[in-house]
Amino acid sequence: MSEKELLGRIRQAIVSMSVSETEAATREALQAGVDPLRIITSGLAAGLTEVGDMWIRRERFISHVLMAAKALNAGQALVEQKLAGKEGHYKATVVLGTPKGDLHDIGKNLVGMMMRAGGFKVYDLGVDVEPRMFIDKAREVNADLIGMSLIMSICLDKMEEVCKLAKAAGIKAKILIGGPATSEKVALRIGADAYGGFDAPTAVHAAKKLVGLAA
């Protein structure tokens, strides 16, 4: 099988959400000597991006994306053993989290996975994150972007606090918000730089635009 076919098989395994097929295809590609980084970018991540595109077209739903992401993680675990500390080339760095009070993490996790697939170095602070922590982490890793996802509108104040703190601190990171409790209007109102929509692929596109990776 050619490298192109091997990578195609990995992408297909992700699209069909099969953990075992993803592992088998990834092993085969590794044994055939395909560059581990290429397995990630042109195989695993490309497969997840394909699932994301289908999600936008409403041919797949969050449940499918989660299952595809599980397959991706299984493949990635095999590749990482071979990478042994070799860092990929990241196009931009992002700090992610849900603001203090919001414990819902599916959306944020999916955005994180798709951002990784899209070439971002992702620092995921998890859920229920104090506003100050976003700023401290962004400064520490010289982030290009802070991404926050919100389901509970009651926590909008905390999101706004992050925006205010970021401005006051003068950090370079731009702020992207998304999730059901946000909107264009919310972004304008609280001083975020962009609204990343209701779904992860839209958020990743908005992130790329903000850091100059997409038009």
């Binding site: 959400m17 969050i62 449940s63 989660l66 299952m67 599980k70 993490d105 599916i106 996790n109």
Partner: peptide
């Protein structure tokens, strides 16, 4: 947990 349940719908 929502994520676990959604994955279990397939597994």
């Amino acid at each position: 947990g929502p994520e676990q349940l959604l994955i279990a719908t397939f597994e």
